[in-house]
Amino acid sequence: MKRIAVRNLRLCTKDCLCLYVCPNGATDTENSIIDTGKCIGCGVCADACPSGAISMVPVEYPPQQKKEDEVVAAMNRVVESKAREEKIARTIAENTDKPGLRKLMKAIERSARLSAEDVIREAGFMLPQSGNSMNLLSNLVENSPGKGFPSDAASKLLSSLKCNDGGFIGASTGKRKYRCLLCQAVFEVEEGEEPVCPMCGAKGKDLEIIG
């Protein structure tokens, strides 16, 4: 799996080994951020760093475990309820002049949002670049939910995110979609090209055409 190095600026002491070991000069940058264009993902810097400041992060993510409809529905119910809680707490915080109550309600507003985020992630919205997330964005661009919706933000996301699981039904392309029966990866190849699973290398009858 292709990886690149990312430096945690909170841990980095900016003065040591990674600068010497990088074969491509990707670590020695004026803004301290490792140059993603130069990094070839060898991982030498991460091994050399005495501060544990460099992690090798994947460039592409595997498709997530598929969520059962019943699980999605159950998670959505919890999220709806937490959303109401958040809104009540926020409204109380905005309307009260009691400092203690305001603080408590702001804490509950924050808490409810965090719980809702955690649960909606388990309803199939783990990755920003998943087909689920991208289809939702494209739906919102096509059917605006109302005045003031930042359609430009959604469009920018649609062009900068690269779908990781083949689930995004974007504009039609001259491509065919396959699912690997061995590792479940979903991927596309140009029509006429021989399909090979990018995750595990499977070919032929281990692949199933799905689109």
Partner: peptide
Amino acid sequence: PVSFDGDMQKLSAGALAALFSNLARGS
């Protein structure tokens, strides 16, 4: 467990707020 119908109800604006702030954190 109680059975929910598989039909996904539309998420409210409040729920979508959490969905998108979660994707912000994921990013």
